[in-house]
Design a protein around this nucleic acid. Sequence first.
DNA 1: CACTTGACCTGTCCGC
DNA 2: TGCGGACAGGTCAAGT
Length: 290
Amino acid sequence: MPELPEVETVVTGLNKLVVGKIIDHVDFDWPKSFPNSDEEIRSYLVGSEIVNVKRRAKVIIMELSSKYSLVAHLKMTGQFVFRGRTNWGAGHPNDSLVSKLPDKSTRVTFTFSDNSKLFFNDQRKFGWIRLLPTSEVANIDFIKKLGPEPLSSDFTHNEFRKQLQKRPNTNIKAALLDQSVIAGIGNIYADESLWGARIHPQSVVKSLTTAQTNKLHNEIVEVLKLSIEKGGSTDRNYVDAEGKKGSYLKFANVFRRENQECPRCGATIVKIRVAGRGTHVCPMCQRIKK
DNA sequence: CACTTGACCTGTCCGC
DNA sequence: TGCGGACAGGTCAAGT
């Protein structure tokens, strides 16, 4: 599922819904989803308050009053959905993929002291939650290696070119999906930003001109901002912390639009395979550059 | 080393 | 309908 805009939307929702809640207990049936020991849970989770929720790349970090944090990755199908007194039973039936919880994809359930609940659902079981000291979050290997946040002021045209030099001989799509080059982009926003910049996903990174990477930089920022504004993309599973879908895909130009007309030139959009991923491209206005 | 290809899982869709 | 295979928004580990 979720790329930067979806995770950002979930984090915004969690800040509104669960900050200030005290964790009473936690239930889980798939240990890989939440592998901490009973001892750690008893000592650092139960009885602690959620004080803040933030995002780095696609990782969600919930800081607790115990000086520990719940760190989570939604991978392809993970969801955090809150249910409490104000929204029992999903207040938006036509806009939601989940009405009754827990359901068979529920892996972890946090119950708060006021009896409201936060469900971690994950159909494919790739996602995970870890409880660890807040001071160690920055030292997680994956987080240490992450490239710049595309919506931060550090992400300049020059910085983007510098980061791309880490992967000079691969294609630009693989480079965009590499979280150590740039943090938070996944399959949808890679395709959309490459279409916006008129760059073919199979173009070799070192062949791109400065004008092209500058344009791509601008497209990445615009596409991500627009998606956050639309509450992210719901392709199949994604919902926000209230269980609602995102509407960005209505505005997408190529993603999942194979066999439709390119909105820019009218040619037929094709779906190919690049970097092992389904990739949507307009063969007319996105040219391969070797 | 740099880069590409499976594996991790469940569910759905499509062709025979 | 049934069944096999491909595919799905991400990241690792193991290959070349």
